[in-house]
């Protein structure tokens, strides 16, 4: 019995965005990463080719993290004491790009200075030739202070700067505009808020090909389904032609998964949770895989094994 292959036709496409700049383009990166360009839902190659495969970013910190799971620290070893070495290890683990998350304070509890932030960024840039995203500690004042310094010191690198949120985006957007960088627009799991922030950022004159949106998400078991559905809705709206939802999406399953109790805690948990390390990695893997299927263009991961697995999944999904 002949079965009709039911194809959807969409009018919209996801914006193509390139992170990083090579020397020829005014930066120093060995290569760039391009995401976006989808004309249909994730990996439905029979409807439209997926021109750029989703990218894997590995999150590193500017110093040894205080609050990371021992499982993660074990996996990376001593490199966590040096952002440059860490970036190299992340590249070796298969990262497409590096996400450097700046700490709020130094190891002694003093606020991170702009000079220290710039130094950490420089270390990463010189140690590793992958494109780089730099996120502030997530507090408005600190983010603005550190990111402006970083942006100015790395003019032309097409870094991805974050985090732009509705309460605090103008300074980061302004400095990204002035220094040729990109911004990461984060909103709390809501389609309309995501659109609104994109409108506000483009209103400042930021071209669409320099914005990535970050709809945020929850780990499996911790609000995953909200993030998942918001991403599906954003992508559907994008394909239906809604310009302000047509940005590639970055999500941080690593961050979300590794703050769950399942990943963080080894002792005193139910036996039914199984082996700690394997469970923690599974948690990150499944969160990331789900988001990949919902339309993620950049997955930010923390554990090298998750990177290996998601690489396998992406390869499998790209075989159309």
């Amino acid at each position: 019995m002949p079965v009709e292959i039911l194809k959807e036709t969409w009018t919209g496409a996801v914006q193509i965005v390139t992170l990083g700049a090579t020397p020829a383009e005014g930066g120093t990166r060995g290569r760039t990463v391009t995401v976006g360009g989808e004309r249909t839902l994730p990996f439905l190659h029979f409807e439209a080719p997926m021109p750029h495969r989703p990218a894997l970013a590995v999150e590193i910190k500017d110093r040894r993290p205080d609050d990371w799971s021992p499982v993660l620290l074990r996996a990376w070893g001593d490199v966590v004491d040096d952002p440059g070495a860490w970036a190299q290890a992340a590249a070796a683990a298969g990262a497409d790009l590096i996400l450097l998350a700046l700490s709020l304070t130094d190891a002694d509890g003093r606020p991170t200075t702009p000079a220290a932030a710039v130094a950490a960024v420089r270390k990463v840039l010189s140690a590793c030739s992958l494109p780089l995203a730099v996120f502030g500690p997530g507090q408005a004042d600190a983010d603005n202070e550190l990111l402006v310094a970083v942006a100015e010191a790395t003019k032309g690198e097409r870094l991805l700067l974050g985090i732009c949120e509705d309460k605090n985006y103008r300074t980061i957007v302004a400095t990204a505009l002035a220094n040729g960088h990109l911004v990461n627009a984060r909103t709390p799991m809501d389609v309309n808020l995501a659109k609104q922030l994109n409108i506000l950022i483009t209103d400042m004159g930021m071209p669409l090909d320099r914005i990535i949106m970050d709809p945020t998400t929850g780990a499996v078991g911790y609000g995953f389904e909200y993030g998942y559905s918001v991403m599906e809705r954003l992508r559907l709206a994008a394909l239906q032609g809604d310009r302000m939802t047509q940005l590639p999406m970055l999500v941080t399953p690593g961050f979300e998964a590794w703050k769950t109790k399942e990943a963080k805690v080894g002792n005193g948990v139910p036996a039914a949770w199984g082996d700690w390390e394997a469970r923690a990695i599974n948690w990150e893997t499944l969160t990331a895989l789900g988001l990949l299927e919902a339309g993620a263009d950049i997955l930010v991961l923390r554990h090298p094994e998750s990177v290996r697995r998601l690489r396998l999944a992406i390869e499998g999904l790209m075989k159309g």
Binding site: V148, E152, R170, T171, V173, A174, T175, A178
Partner: peptide
Amino acid sequence: LRSWGIQLVDGR
């Protein structure tokens, strides 16, 4: 220019 410009753009 950049220092003041950012403040003019971000509304400070």
